[in-house]
């Protein structure tokens, strides 16, 4: 007699994790990007986000291929090099009720897309912008990108003699309201960070160090698995309790920075760096700049601001998405045109 297979574990909205998966990855085995895709699946599953209510956006590069490898049930738009911010901005304005995840890379963001990136950050549109950061152009034989650290060495022996752009410091300075850095190899930290990101209302910018096993995982690289395992220095330990979770956690309030999220969930940042305050913008930028000077790789949530108005609030958009507003509301009446014509006579 056959025994029934156990029912698969379902999430808060009753869906199994398989409903959050995507196509098979065509990236190299061991690529950090694959681990990030897995964490995105886990985070959306655990947060009970409806897959149909997610938009996946990307540019060009290894990183930007990954939206095909998670959430097949979500709409996706793969734009051109560095232009994802403009496309995402338009899509979000058309429907701001969606959860929007943009996946970019260090080349896509910090070189060709820099002009668009900086303007996205200052608008505080509600979206999660992830940089899968390996410091090299993986699709074109591994040349250094603009986030490669000063002194980092390529397999060919070429040494990077320009300072890397710290996308986190930049995003904080420009106006993003949730900024963090993680490492693809740190499952726990990345998952907590992504879950908190989903709960945040505003622009989340996450720089995730994601080693390129083909071109930048050797001795002398500052974006290799080994280097990150040895040098990853978390600034805080992220504890996230979703609004629907009923978990009481005991903690010493002196050691934890607690943030009430917009959706009612709770973010608890255990301080690992002496009294680090993630709401102090100037201190966050200074800390990152000092870390860069000292060749330290800080991870964690550097900055969070749950108060700042989003671009949607600033534009005073109606609750119903513009994409589905009926014509009776989007087209002004004949009397409006007639009045205008009379005024021009």
């Amino acid at each position: 007699m056959a025994t029934a297979a156990p029912a698969p574990k379902v999430n808060y909205i009753g869906l199994p994790i398989v409903d959050y998966r995507g196509g098979k990855s065509t990236l190299c085995a061991g690529c950090g990007h694959n681990a990030i895709s897995e964490r995105i699946v886990d985070a959306l599953f655990e947060m009970g986000v409806e897959p149909e209510r997610v938009m996946k956006m990307s540019g060009i590069g290894c990183s930007s291929k990954t939206p095909a490898y998670f959430l097949s049930r979500s709409h996706a738009f793969n734009g051109v090099h560095g232009r994802m911010p403009a496309i995402a901005s338009g899509a979000i304005l058309a429907n701001h009720t969606m959860t929007t995840i943009g996946v970019s890379g260090d080349g896509d963001t910090a070189s060709i897309g820099m002009g668009q990136f900086v303007h996205l950050m200052r608008r505080n549109l509600p979206m999660i912008y992830i940089i899968e950061d390996n410091g090299v152009y993986g699709l074109t034989k591994g040349q250094f990108s603009a986030t490669a650290d000063l002194g980092s060495r390529l397999k060919t022996g070429v040494v990077n003699d320009l300072p890397g752009i710290d996308t986190c410091a930049l995003a904080i300075q420009l106006g993003a309201t949730f900024v963090g850095r993680s490492f693809s190899g740190d499952k726990k930290q990345l998952l907590s960070m992504l879950k908190a990101a989903i709960a945040h209302k505003g622009t989340v910018m996450l720089d995730v160090i994601s080693p390129c096993v083909t071109f930048n995982d050797h001795e002398g690289s500052t974006k290799s698995y080994k280097f990150m395992q040895e040098n990853d220095e978390p600034i805080n330990e992220i504890g996230f309790v979703a609004s629907f979770d009923d978990i009481a956690v005991d903690y010493d309030s002196g050691e934890v920075y607690e943030v009430e999220m917009h959706d009612g969930s709770n973010l608890r940042l255990r301080k690992l760096h002496e009294d680090y305050d993630p709401t102090d913008k100037a201190n966050a930028v200074r800390t990152l700049m000092e870390a860069q000077d000292n060749n330290e790789i800080l991870t964690g949530i550097f900055y969070i601001n749950t108060e700042k108005a989003t671009f949607i609030d600033q534009l005073n958009l109606v609750d119903e998405p513009l994409a589905t507003l009926p014509e009776s509301l989007t087209r002004p009446p004949k009397s409006a045109l007639d009045a205008l014509m009379t005024a021009l006579k």
Partner: peptide, 8 residues
């Protein structure tokens, strides 16, 4: 409902 819009 979903589909993947790509340049490729």
């Amino acid at each position: 409902a979903s589909y993947f819009t790509r340049g490729s």
